[in-house]
Write a protein that binds this DNA or RNA. Sequence first.
DNA 1: TTTTGTGAACTAGTTCACAGCT
DNA 2: AGCTGTGAACTAGTTCACAAAA
Lengths: 222, 222
Amino acid sequence: MNPQNKRKPSNEQVSELTTNRLSVYLRCLNQLESAGVNTISSQALAEQFHLNAAQIRKDLAYFGEFGVRGVGYYVKELKRHLRQILGLDRKVRVAVMGAGNLGLALADYPGFRREGFEIVAMFDVADAKIGDESRSGVPIFDLKELKKIVKRDRIDIAVIAVPAESAQPVLEQVVAAGIKAVLNFSPGTLKQPKGVKLKSVDLTVSLESLSFYLAQGIDPEE
Amino acid sequence: MNPQNKRKPSNEQVSELTTNRLSVYLRCLNQLESAGVNTISSQALAEQFHLNAAQIRKDLAYFGEFGVRGVGYYVKELKRHLRQILGLDRKVRVAVMGAGNLGLALADYPGFRREGFEIVAMFDVADAKIGDESRSGVPIFDLKELKKIVKRDRIDIAVIAVPAESAQPVLEQVVAAGIKAVLNFSPGTLKQPKGVKLKSVDLTVSLESLSFYLAQGIDPEE
DNA sequence: TTTTGTGAACTAGTTCACAGCT
DNA sequence: AGCTGTGAACTAGTTCACAAAA
């Protein structure tokens, strides 16, 4: 009905599972575009990438009527819509907190740069690291300069890759500096600051979940 | 009723959300133990770590009757049970596929070692890297030796940290080498091999999900 | 009295199945 | 004919609320 300015009904909350899938769809479309495909049905998309057709349609329909009945979706057009929905139609600036092994690896991670993200700064407290830069040239600043650099470089997202015990204070400094979205790699529970989106990737939990599978899966019975 | 040999009813499937939480509970218990706490109620545990008391009880009750009514759970005892359920009562051996920035960072990640995991090998195809080792001393082998080393070192879990385009073939080699649990960091959809537990952490999807929040959250209306 | 373990109620998320558009 | 968009049906996951145990 309302053609494609449907948008999020503003108060209603989109599930994280849905937004994660939008991101997956975008990547699929990138591949299809490279392969020279112009148009794709939810059915074909689902088969090719092991997804569910009804779910694709429902996810997309939530944001507008992007498809054409009898045809499917125009790859380029849908890609444009998804990029806009995901906020990737502008540069998104990212800072990495912690210039340790993991922080440096994340700062140089090629996957981030590809889709419009720009890693503009790293922060650490170790004098030896400050002033230095990552292999790909991301400068390492003193954590004390956080507020200033966040303002200056208009940083949108912070990635936390500091030791567990510093995670909570660093999160608080990041929030105090005005950052509204945080991706945390430190293990352990962080207090969810309000008005801020906090997403955590817990490597230990992931590995232990696999270990559980092995422990349970092996013996048929005993 | 059935005291604590309840175990998983063998056919029934434990949700991944549950196993992830078990891992979180274990970490909480570690902290409590260090703090010298002997006994904890689901209520107190929930409050202290921002969890839900009913959910804690339900998760635990699924594996046995670990609590004592009127008292709560004995920290040491519950910890022991959780470690056993998660298969952490023995050493779990891990290999990292790909000795790039991310692979090296993961191989040296201190969080893995802490809870019984042992990173025993890395694999790569670049001659320059083979024979070398990570900062903390994890040796880098030729990918061709995978099968041999997996057997020799009885490797349980593989972590995939190779470029996106190699992820699928590497996964297949890992599975062919007899590994039954894989943690994948490469972006993109992988074919789920059967009989193998595959868990993916997609850094790009995580960041894009945050970008979505920023894109939607900002303008009150327009 | 305190707190577990658990059915029942509820909430969220997925899939089905089909009306309606092209 | 083909495929979307979507209500309805279903499935999974969470929270409530209370009987039973210590």
